[in-house]
Amino acid sequence: MTPTLLPQPATHTAGHHDTPLTPDWAEIVAITPEADGIATLWLKFTDPQVEQQYHFQPGQFNMLYVPGVGEAAISMSSDPDDERRLVGHTVRFVGNVTRAIGRLKIGDQLGVRGPFGTAWPMKTVEGRDLVVACGGIGLPPLRPALYHVVRNRERYGKVTLLYGARTSKDLLYPGEYEAWRKADITVEATVDRGDEHWDGRVGVVPMWFYNFRLDPRNTIVLTCGPEIMIRFVIYEALARRVPTDRIYVSLERNMKCGQGSCGHCQMGPYFVCKDGPVFPFSALAKYINVEEY
C-alpha cells in the first residue's frame, strides 16, 4: 500500500511587510540648532496614513534609521499634541548613527520605527507636586512632559524644573524657560562651570535639593540625565523621604529593536526598551549599586 502523502503545504512567506523591523519614511522639515553638536530634527511622515495614526506619549522613543548606517534610539522631545503633527527629536551627534543624522539636511529622509517604551506617568501623578530633575541631554525626553503640564496645568501641584548643563552655552531650550515660568513652572537652571555669559547658579543638579523644600508626602520626582547625576538625584530624593515608587527614572541602553527582542538593552529581568525606559525607582533599587549590570 502506498503511504498517503501529506497535504501539500501552502507556500509560506514571512510577511516582511509586517516585519516589526521595517521603518516608515519621514522627511526632515526643519532643523533647530540647540547647542554645540545638538539639534532638534522635525520629522513629517511621508505616508499620510502613518502620520495620522502616529501618536506618542511623553518619555517614549523612536528608532531613527539612516539608510546604510543604522538605527539609534532617540526620545521624542516635542509636544505630543503638536498641531502640525510634526515629531521632534533632539539629537546629540556623538555616535556612529547620530553623527550621520547630524549630516542630514532639510528635505532628507529618515526611517522611523516607533513609538516604543514606557512613558512618564503623567496620569498617575496628577494632583502631585512634580520635581523634574535633569542634566544635559536628559531634558529632551522630559520636554514633552513639560508641554503636557503646560497644557493641563490645573491637574498638577507645584512644578519645578531643575536643569543643569556643563556651561551656559550647553543649556537646551533657553528660549522656552520664560513660557514655562509663565505657566507657573519654577525653572531653575544651573551650570557646572560659570563664565562671563552666566550670572545664575553654578553647581550640579543634585545640589539643588539642599536649597529646595519639598513635601515628601506629595512629591513626584522625574529624572533623566547622566547616570552619575541620576544616582545622586535619587539619593537626595530618598534623603528627603520621597518614596521609591514616586521617583521615576529614564534609563539609556544600547538598543537595536525597541521591542524586547534583540537582547541588547537588558538590565536584570528588564528589557529597558519595552519595560522602560521610564521606570519607577522601586523597580531598579535592587540593581542600582551592582556595578556594570
Binding site: G70, E71, C262, G263
Partner: peptide, 9 residues
C-alpha cells in the same frame, strides 16, 4: 536569542 542588525552598502 540576541541579535544585531547590519547595513551593507
Amino acid at each position: 536569542f540576541c541579535w544585531d542588525v547590519t547595513d551593507t552598502v
